[in-house]
């Protein structure tokens, strides 16, 4: 599959999802830009993955931040 095909498919997939959400029709160029912006984000998440999430306890983020604070920072 050529790069052009992938690009077209990617934009088309975004257009289909937007349509499913009931939104206005997205221009192919806008759909392509959305796909590109999202792709970078999703790739970053995938690359950061180290093992299965089954091994990670869900955490309360604010509690995590509190646990990492300098003990003297509230004085």
């Amino acid at each position: 599959m050529s790069d052009h095909d992938i690009t077209s498919d990617r934009a088309a997939a975004v257009q289909v999802m937007a349509q499913t959400m009931g939104w206005q029709t997205l221009e192919p160029s806008a759909a392509e830009r959305i796909a590109r912006g999202a792709e970078n984000a999703v790739r970053a998440v995938a690359e950061r993955r180290r093992g299965s999430l089954f091994d990670t306890e869900p955490g309360d983020f604010v509690a995590t931040l509190e646990s990492l604070a300098d003990p003297d920072s509230d004085t």
């Binding site: 959305i34 912006g37 999703v42 869900p58």
Partner: peptide, 16 residues
């Protein structure tokens, strides 16, 4: 709309 829900949840889960 182009962020898979699994990637979103994974990003949140990885954050701590």
């Amino acid at each position: 709309v182009a962020i898979p829900s699994a990637a979103y949840l994974e990003a949140l889960h990885l954050r701590p």
